[in-house]
Design a protein around this nucleic acid. Structure first.
Lengths: 200, 200
DNA sequence: TCAAAACGTTAACAAAAGATAAGAAAATGG
DNA sequence: CCATTTTCTTATCTTTTGTTAACGTTTTGA
């Protein structure tokens, strides 16, 4: 866990702008509660059975979220550069995770630990902004999840894949197909068949 | 749109306690921004194509969320007494809904309009608490949706139904089976077969 | 109260998906 | 650079789900 360079801090600050803007005094306070972690490929940010103790922001690299089901690996989500990463339920409730989060390549993540977040939420100098920050991030991901649940309710796997072809460039270009299959809720073999069906 | 009785306000206040506690001054301010709507059976709280302009709390009754897909009705979610109700994405972003929310029985809903919520978020007397309130509610539903997405990724329809049998008493007892089937991401015929399979 | 609508099950057939295994191509990592 | 692993496709067979329609029961609403 290292400190962040000013270049790294600037990238982070710029990405937060769409949620909340910090003034200089706030930013100094805020950044005192951050650290930086570097993950090698395949290293874990979170593991099933353990509590996810950090809320993170992917500076460089990418991660995948996966479950182990009957000994098999099932990928459910990804975070890319300049996106947040956490096993939200575990982080927020303090319960053990039921999934893994793993770096897919060398990955740098800005970390906010739960104790540090709680300190900021309790600090009158930062409390209001942190509540707002938390609200807007939670709302953003709530909307993502709402869309994702609706896709399972209203679309077939083939329709979900076609939609991903339209909108999911980064996922499609950077992830192996069996991860994408899991993400769509089907097996890799089934995705391969859907691809064949579509090309004809 | 009526005013609320003090009995109704007390029910609401008590339900909010698990998110945030208002002092008397705050409560008075807060309640000035509420109204009450009564829905007859089958009346709509939100409609596809229109903006969902309210965040609601179900005082009595229940609602279902549904989509129209190729002329068919697909139920995706429910809210029961003392739960919140809204088409979050539409409410938060101001975009038109893509689903309907309909009363399943005579239903009373406490309403917070978007303009009223924005006023409270801008009012220094309430801002902090409202940000916190919003954060905790968004986090709560984020966790619900996270679980729901994971159920689609990691479980078969049969497993989802078995899980619902363990945990979803209210849904199972009060909803017709074809709504439950949609909620599980399958057709009513398929749920009927799963039920038969399980009983043997 | 009575006709109409909604509900749940079942059957029959078609379509899609899961499981497993095999094989070729590509990527990976000493 | 080469052996190993990963990735993707394909084939076969089984299971599950979707679709449509029929039927009896229950609920609903006028």
């Amino acid at each position: 866990m290292d400190a962040l360079t000013s270049a790294q801090l600037n990238v982070f600050r710029e990405s937060l702008e769409k949620y909340v803007s910090f003034n200089e005094a706030e930013w100094i306070l805020f950044t005192q509660h951050l650290s930086l972690a570097t993950y090698k490929k395949k290293q874990h940010f979170a593991e099933a059975g353990s509590i996810c103790r950090h809320f993170g922001f992917v500076l460089t690299g990418s991660v995948r979220y996966y479950h182990i089901i009957d000994g098999n690996d099932v990928t459910g989500y990804f975070s890319f550069e300049r996106e947040f990463v956490s096993s939200y339920k575990s982080f927020l409730t303090g319960e053990p995770c039921n999934n893994y989060i793993q770096a897919l390549e060398p990955t740098q993540i800005v970390l906010i630990s739960k104790p540090n977040l709680d300190k900021m939420l309790a600090n009158p100098m930062l409390a209001y902004k942190m509540e707002r920050f938390g609200r807007l991030i939670a709302e953003h991901y709530l909307i993502c999840y709402e869309d994702r649940v609706n896709s399972f309710i209203t679309q077939t796997p083939e329709e979900r894949y076609l939609k991903l072809l339209e909108t999911g460039r980064e996922v499609l270009q950077r992830m192996p197909q069996h991860y994408i299959a899991n993400f769509l809720g089907i097996t890799p073999v089934s995705l391969s068949r859907i691809r064949k069906r579509i090309l004809v």
